[in-house]
Nucleic acid binder design. Structure first.
Length: 917
RNA sequence: GGUCGCUUAGCUCAGUCGGUAGAGCACCACGCUCACAUCGUGGGGGUCGCUGGUUCGAGUCCAGCAGCGACCACCA
């Protein structure tokens, strides 16, 4: 038997095992495994991390979960395909490279488009994919032969096909609308890419003077209580409007009131002098205006506000863009404001209005300011010509798939969130003014103006034959390639075996943050292009947070590097820790200031596994292992084998329900609590041959069987330490041995090994040992000192204790067991076993503190009397007896009877003490 | 503003069908008995956020309130 070191050294075992699994091709699943071997596929596609990303704990959690599921299904015999890859991450990656350039004092424009894109490619080739290497250190068993990248030729082809097809179907259109514009990234954003942040701002009130011709009407209206109409110091009349963004007033082309607002009815059509600009704008009527809010009068800036754009479209107001792409005031505004940043302009506009006596104060106002999800810059609504996907027709089937249960969510509450989003779906702005990404497959003929949308790059205009074609300069939203991931990675639109076999997939594991960005859209595209949902189960993980509940992030410096954890404590320790911490629907909290403490549970358990394995291997001794079925098994053998069956059943059930932490918990307690603490302790003498050869053989065979079983069950969560130990296990003669644990069959409970009687008797024995130990501690009897034990109970328990007499002596230091009632004159501590009806009596003459024991007894009697009283009251209650479930009533009766019996014994004991003291 | 979720031991969280509240960590005491001190044994610690309701009985079901959080949102 090989000597194992007393401490698990993950660094010594993990990398070689991973290399071997990889080399043996166990992660790779060819389509033939399904088509020829008839195996049932199980497919997970990885949420592709950004190609430039480095691993953080969120990935650690997410990918551990995926690997647990994949390894478990693989052991179940499924063709378990886990497809890895990365996302080109348009804005994020371009930003990274632009920052690099900035350090060299250059911009992307200095380089020009093609050289810039080449530079990004270089960067991606150099550093991209680091994260995938890091996943390997975590033990992720991805099918690396299929590693995909959203800019790969195949995936790019899928993107283009989808664009063209949607365009043909009329689901893609180009138009001039208000979109979310990031003035720093200089690109349009989708609604999902904008994050609202609650901000304490101000609501400024400003005045727009009315043309003199309307003063009389205005005065009249003011007298009738039109609060928005005020008189200026020069005697003229003005409208009062409110705004959170005063700088946009330079782009106002109207003022709107509700058509049925009696207060302002006379003013509809009136001319208003727009301050600072010398322009005259009209008052229009539009039902969007809420008469109840503020003064019931709204300034209209069609080119810089989505609502105003709508109002303008309905009322015919012209849009007027007053900002440059980087959010400075453009040449459309009066000279003094030109070139000012929008926030600078805000101050300047307010100051200018004040000078003209048109500033009317401000109020504190909390509102949601939209920010770019990539750079946090305040997003500017901007009128712009962009490409959009018409989402309504795509959303409908995706909604139905959730409603009819074709797709299910874990935790279930996300279903509602998903459906709510789809019910209120808005069109998707997919064009980005970036260079890094899939170029939009659209060309404009410079000759005749024709727009060409094509699968292949056109060389000439199909309408006029001109060769002067210019491709649309924009690229597509990164998510426009990610949403095709479940089929584009399997060669779609080409109809291959891979596609047929691995689509649709099964489980998607991801963070809730990208439910709309990615999950919902994948379901939409899957249904639309493949006719089937891409997966049927969506498992949304929690968020990894620090001890203060803050999200882990680079900028906060509160992150934990999973690789550091792997390096220090091993992948198994990290995996077990996160799995056991990831209760469904809850976030996981880790302390970045105490990485060791945070991962101690996993590390300790991995080490426990190692040591128990080490002990087992060392104490099995030489000689063949006999078959279990040929041996006469002891009580503890039957007990642990039975417990293993229950554990296998429960573990499987929990995994099926995505309750990974429960699975981890069951295995932890079975391994540590049952196997290591009890079984191993119980069989030590037997393994040494102290109880005879037959007994030794039974213990060896049982130990091997249980170890084999529990290592299999633990393998998905802790693949390395389990595989390392499993390889050292001797194998029963004649039994077929799988090639490796990673490909060993998943245990299914063997009913013939289930033994409730053994479980029950062991439970009594364990309790007896616990009671004796506890009493020893309580009375301060030295650990090493043996004690006599008197007990009485029924025949079954007696048999148990007799069978375990030796173990009792070792585990509880019991010197002698007497089956007789303690006579008068003997005093001791005692305990009553709850279920078993067995009483323990430790004669403790000379040790016991009689006063203390008496008090304790009295206390216990009082407590039990209380319980009994409550129980009897319940039983006396006619409603309870007639209405409660029969088994509950029966249980209550038994409990009461038991209590009464215990009480009688306690009183007897107390009487004994009285006599002695 | 709307929707959803959470509130149980010092901390992080379980708690299935309503029937005498659990785990891990932390803490205290004892123990280096040859698998493991990353360990073992024992122990202390909870008015289950508050109020009311349903029920024979509520951590669990219902209503209201408070606090926290998430998501959604075009009231300037």
């Amino acid at each position: 038997m090989r000597e194992l070191p007393p401490r698990l050294d993950p660094r010594a075992i993990e990398p070689p095992l991973y290399r071997e699994w990889l080399a043996r091709g166990w992660f790779h699943v060819p389509a033939s495994a399904v088509l020829e071997e008839g195996r049932d596929p199980y497919v997970i596609v990885i949420p592709p991390p950004n190609v430039t990303a480095v691993l953080h704990m969120g990935h650690g959690l997410n990918n551990t979960i995926q690997d647990v599921l994949i390894r478990w299904r693989r052991m179940q015999g499924r063709a378990a395909e886990w497809l890895p890859g990365t996302d080109h991450a348009g804005i994020a990656t371009q930003n990274v490279v632009e920052r690099q350039l900035a350090q060299e004092g250059r911009t992307r424009d200095d380089l020009g488009r093609d050289p810039f894109v080449e530079r990004v490619w270089e960067f991606v080739r150099e550093t991209g994919g680091t994260i995938l290497e890091q996943l390997k250190a975590m033990g992720c068993s991805c099918d690396w032969e299929r590693t995909a990248f959203t800019l790969d030729p195949g995936l790019s082809r899928a993107v283009r096909e989808v664009f063209v097809r949607l365009h043909e179907e009329g689901l893609i259109y180009r138009g001039e609308y208000i979109i979310n514009w990031c003035p720093r990234c200089l690109t349009a954003l989708s609604n999902e890419e904008v994050e609202a942040s609650e901000t304490e701002g101000r609501l400024w009130r400003i005045r727009y003077p009315l043309a003199e011709s309307t003063w009389r009407v205005a005065e009249h209206a003011a007298a009738r209580g039109a609060s928005a109409i005020v008189q200026l110091s020069n005697g003229g009349w003005a409208l009062s409007v409110s705004t959170t963004r005063p700088e946009t007033m330079l782009g106002d082309t109207g003022v709107a009131v509700h058509p049925e607002d009696e207060r302002y009815r006379g003013l509809i059509g009136a001319d208003v002098q727009l301050p600072l600009t010398g322009r005259t704008i009209p008052v229009v009527a539009d039902p969007f205006v809420d008469p109840e809010f503020g003064s019931g009068m709204v300034k209209v800036t069609p080119a810089h506000d989505p609502n105003d754009f709508e109002i303008a479209a309905r009322t015919g107001l012209p849009p007027m863009t007053v900002m440059t792409p980087d959010a400075r005031m453009n040449d459309a505004v009066p000279e003094p404001f030109r070139g000012m940043d929008r926030f600078e302009a805000r101050t300047a506009v307010l100051a200018a209005l004040e000078r003209e006596g048109l500033f009317a104060g401000s109020d504190a106002h909390t509102h949601a300011v939209p920010r770019c999800y990539r750079c946090d810059t305040v997003v500017e609504p901007r009128l712009s010509k962009q490409w959009f996907v018409r989402m309504g027709p795509l959303a409908e089937p995706a909604l139905a798939a959730s409603r009819d249960g074709t797709v299910s969510f874990t935790p279930e509450r996300w279903k509602k969130v998903y459906e709510h989003w789809l019910e209120n779906i808005r069109d998707w702005c997919i064009s980005r003014q970036l260079w890094w990404g899939h170029r939009i497959p659209v060309w404009y003929c410079q000759q005749c103006g024709e727009t060409i949308v094509a699968r292949e790059d056109p060389t000439s205009c199909p309408t006029c034959g001109s060769v002067a074609l210019e491709q649309d300069p924009d690229v597509l939203d990164t998510w426009f390639s990610s949403w095709l991931w479940p089929f584009s990675t399997f060669s779609w639109p080409e109809q291959t075996d891979d596609l047929r076999v691995f689509y649709p997939g099964h489980t998607l594991v991801t963070a809730p943050e990208i439910l709309f960005f990615w999950v919902a859209r994948m379901i939409m595209s899957g249904l639309h292009f493949m006719g089937e949902v891409p997966f049927t189960q969506v498992f949304l993980t929690g968020t990894v947070r620090d001890i203060q509940g803050r999200k882990m992030s680079k900028s906060l410096g509160n992150g934990i590097d999973p690789l550091e954890v792997v390096e220090r404590f091993g992948a198994d320790a990290m995996r077990f820790t996160v799995v056991s911490a990831c209760a469904v629907g809850t976030d996981i909290h880790l302390d970045h200031n105490d990485v060791e403490g945070s991962f101690a549970p996993g590390r300790n358990f991995a080490n426990k596994l190692w040591n128990a394995g080490r002990f087992t291997l060392m104490s099995l001794g030489e000689g063949p292992i006999q078959s279990l079925s040929d041996l006469r098994l002891a009580l503890e053998d039957r007990w642990i084998l039975s417990r293993l069956q229950g554990t296998a059943k429960e573990t499987t059930l929990e995994l099926e329900r995505f309750r990974l932490h429960e699975a981890a918990d069951r295995l932890y307690h079975f391994f540590w609590g049952d196997l290591a603490d009890w079984y191993v302790e119980l069989v030590k003498p037997r393994l040494k041959g102290e109880v005879g050869e037959t007994s030794r053989q039974a213990a060896r065979a049982t130990l091997i069987a249980v170890f084999d079983g529990v290592l299999r069950l633990l393998h998905p969560i802790m693949p390395f330490v389990t595989e390392a130990l499993w390889r050292e296990l001797p194998w029963p003669e004649g039994a077929e041995r799988p090639e490796a644990l990673i490909v060993a069959p998943w245990p299914t409970p063997d009913r013939s090994l289930c033994d409730p009687a053994a479980e029950s008797r062991m439970a009594d024995f364990q309790e007896l040992v616990g009671v004796v130990r506890s009493l020893r501690k309580e009375y301060g009897i030295a650990e090493g000192k043996g004690i006599p034990l008197a007990l009485w109970g029924d025949g079954d328990l007696r048999a148990t204790v007799e069978a375990q007499r030796g173990a009792l002596a070792r585990l509880a230091r019991v010197e002698e067991v007497r089956w007789e009632r303690a006579g008068a004159g003997t005093v001791g501590a005692h305990a009553v076993l709850k279920g078993g009806g067995m009483e323990v009596f430790l004669p403790l003459d000379g040790v016991i503190d009689v006063g203390r024991e008496r008090a304790r007894l009295q206390e216990e009697i009082a407590r039990k009397e209380g319980h009994l009283g409550a129980g009897q009251k319940r039983l006396a209650n006619e409603q309870f007896v007639t209405r409660a479930r029969p088994d509950v009533v029966e249980k209550e009766r038994e409990r009461a009877a038991g209590l009464a019996e215990e009480l009688a014994k306690l009183r007897e004991k107390l009487a004994l003490l009285e006599g002695w003291g």
